[in-house]
């Protein structure tokens, strides 16, 4: 039981991180219908942004305080939002009218470019860097359990962000524009929606969420390095597909599901080595029965 609750919290925290990343994948997909492979690198850049921002921030706020951590989180989110918009502007916008496959390969190219550039010794270098402690390690012990305080922070912040995102998409003008563009880009343009601004905003928003996820991920990892984004990026991608790509609640659900699966499978010794395989096996199994994901709408081809 104790083991179960601990794995549950742990899995929820990991799942929250995946959910935040998956939202970025799914939002871009919803609007541009392509998989932004560079998303996992934005997440890595978010962690690095925090790495460089954290020391100066300690001059303003007491170290390991919530205010300081929040400031770091916000700053790296802003930095990544700008990077995300820049990637869209430089690499994807010129290809807007091209076949999707072209854009997909470009995205792979952008991803490789960021990874290799950051690995270069004059940039970040390939070796593992210790990530600064943003928050003190504190463990709660309710009813004999041992719960990591940072895990709780991750879950709470994610829940707040999801609520905020829901409000943004459902209740604001920009959200309405986003939904309109994702439904029918041409019609939205004819209705006076500024497509470029919506797409730019979507990339910025997705990248900011990825940055937050990157910082959280780095807090749980042993250190950061330029390829750290690949694994969570891949998992979040699976999560987005699992939930039905293009579907926001689906991405959140898929992320949580994947985090839980990974933690529980990893907690069982006989399965832990097969962890990566199991996540994919479950995905394939689900797609066989629901080919467009858990919450995705089945596209019936009109004949």
């Amino acid at each position: 039981m104790e083991w179960f609750v601990q794995q549950l919290i742990n899995g929820l925290a990991l799942g929250s991180i995946y959910a935040l990343i998956a939202l970025g994948y799914t939002m871009v997909y919803g609007i541009l219908r392509f998989i932004n492979f560079a998303h996992s690198d934005v997440l890595m850049l978010g962690a690095f942004a925090a790495y460089f921002v954290a020391p100066p921030v300690t001059h303003l706020f007491p170290p390991q305080s919530y205010a300081g951590a929040l400031a770091v989180l916000l700053l790296s989110a802003v930095i990544c939002a700008i990077i995300g918009m820049l990637i869209e502007f430089l690499a994807y916008r010129p290809l807007r009218r091209r076949p999707r496959l072209t854009v997909l390969i470009t995205a792979i190219g952008v991803s490789l470019f960021i990874e290799y550039t950051c690995q270069h010794e004059k940039v970040f270098g390939a070796q593992l860097k210790p990530f600064p402690k943003l928050l003190a390690e504190q463990n709660f012990h309710p009813a004999g359990l041992s719960i990591n305080g940072n895990d709780v922070v991750v879950v709470v912040v994610t829940a707040l962000l999801l609520a905020g995102l829901w409000y943004l998409v459902q209740k604001t003008r920009m959200g309405l524009a986003m939904r309109a563009v994702s439904f029918n880009e041409k019609a939205a343009a004819l209705m006076g929606v500024n497509i470029n601004r919506v797409i730019s905003f979507t990339f910025g928003l997705g990248s900011a969420l990825a940055a937050v996820a990157g910082v959280f991920y780095a807090m749980r990892a042993q250190g950061i390095e330029p390829l750290m984004g690949i694994k969570p990026g891949l998992y979040a991608f699976i999560a987005a597909v699992l939930g039905g790509i293009g579907n926001l609640p689906g991405a959140a659900l898929g992320g949580l599901a994947l985090g839980l699966i990974e933690t529980f499978a990893g907690g069982i010794p006989a399965l832990s080595n097969y962890r990566d395989g199991i996540a994919f096996a479950i995905l394939i199994f689900i797609l066989l029965f629901k080919p467009s994901g858990l919450l995705g709408k089945t596209q019936v081809e009109k004949v």
Binding site: V241, N273, Y274, I284, L287, P291
Partner: peptide
């Protein structure tokens, strides 16, 4: 699975199969 999945879904399923094969060899 290619009988049921299309496009991006198929891409991810094949990617998944590739990774599963790798994990099996790894273990």
């Amino acid at each position: 699975p290619s009988l049921r999945c299309k496009g991006d879904y198929l891409a991810i399923v094949t990617l998944g199969f590739g990774e599963i094969i790798r994990v099996i060899f790894q273990n």
